[in-house]
């Protein structure tokens, strides 16, 4: 009975000797730089080398493929002087404000509604047709309408992104509730849970693994929509910056803009994965 607990080994013991300390550092190092991570780093480095070589050899024109140095210079330039009178930070902040306000609104509405729909087939029947209809539509199709209704400013974009985030969140909440084993609900009732407590303390946490999958899908889709929307109609934001640069054939700005977009997306996804790791440690372990 004693040996059957799965424990992770402790890395640092109390009062390590210098020898032990260097051994500990080595273990930490090995845990951070796994073989797989080193391979990933290597393949990224290989691409950079290829890029440098190709641009050095002048195989293609600078306008199509700017050199890494030119892209770096463009980055420093917009970092110091901004782009078209707005600092780089403000462009990014504009984009993030749109993204997060929409995402926040979607989380606080789609998740409760999805949980209720998952629990009650009747409520689900009332809401589902709308979700089923608009979910497969490309958001830009109705963005035109939103711009007519709400103008070119942030309102139309936030509503657009809200709609983009709503469907995946709602659907993940519904499917999360449907996947709860009947015994879990029964068990909670036999422990004296009331209806409201059942929702907040059993159904909601039970859905967390599914909800996080929904969050990741939603943020990815919302982000794509954000950049597209900024390219269609905006006067600021990281997406707008790239589109505007293309009009002046500034491929160095386009490159750095795309790199920033990509890194931001990875950061957002990483943040959600970290939250998931902290909040749903039991995922996949039942």
């Amino acid at each position: 009975m004693k040996a059957d607990v799965q424990k992770t080994p402790k890395l640092v013991s109390s009062d390590p000797t210098p020898n032990e300390r260097s051994a500990n550092l080595k273990i930490v190092f090995q845990q951070i730089f796994t073989t797989e991570r080193l391979i990933s780093l290597g393949s990224v480095a290989a691409l950079f080398i290829l890029w440098t070589v190709v641009s050095k050899l002048q195989v293609v024109d600078d306008m199509f493929l700017p050199s890494p140095a030119a892209v770096w210079a463009a980055f420093l330039d917009i970092l110091q002087n901004g782009y078209k009178g707005t600092s780089l930070f403000m462009h990014i902040a504009e984009s993030m404000i749109r993204l997060f306000s929409a995402f926040f609104l979607a989380v606080v509405t789609a998740i409760p509604l999805g949980l209720i729909s998952g629990y009650s087939p009747k409520i689900r029947a009332a809401i589902d047709p709308f979700i089923e209809f608009y979910r497969p539509l490309p958001p830009l199709a109705y963005y035109t309408l939103l711009v007519i209704w709400l103008g070119i400013e942030n309102e139309s974009k936030i509503v657009l992104l809200y709609l983009a985030a709503f469907a995946p969140l709602y659907i993940s909440a519904v499917s999360g509730v449907k996947q709860i084993p009947a015994d879990r609900i029964h068990g909670a009732l036999s422990l004296g849970a009331s209806k409201p407590a059942l929702f907040t303390q059993v159904i909601f946490p039970s859905c967390l693994p599914e909800l996080f999958t929904g969050l990741r899908t939603a943020i990815g889709f919302t982000y794509t929509t954000l950049v597209a929307a900024e390219m269609v109609a905006a006067a600021s934001g990281i997406g707008w910056m790239v589109l505007d640069a293309s009009k002046f054939l500034r491929s160095d700005i386009i490159f750095i803009g795309i790199i920033i977009m990509g890194l931001l997306a990875m950061l957002l996804d990483g943040a959600i994965r970290y939250l998931e790791y902290r909040l749903v440690p039991w995922k996949g372990k039942n």
Binding site: G187, S190, V202, P205, K285
Partner: peptide, 16 residues
């Protein structure tokens, strides 16, 4: 309700 307790075939604990 809480008058009748149940222990299931699988532990059925709340994993969170």
């Amino acid at each position: 309700n809480a008058e009748v307790g149940v222990v299931f075939q699988h532990p059925n604990l709340f994993p969170w």
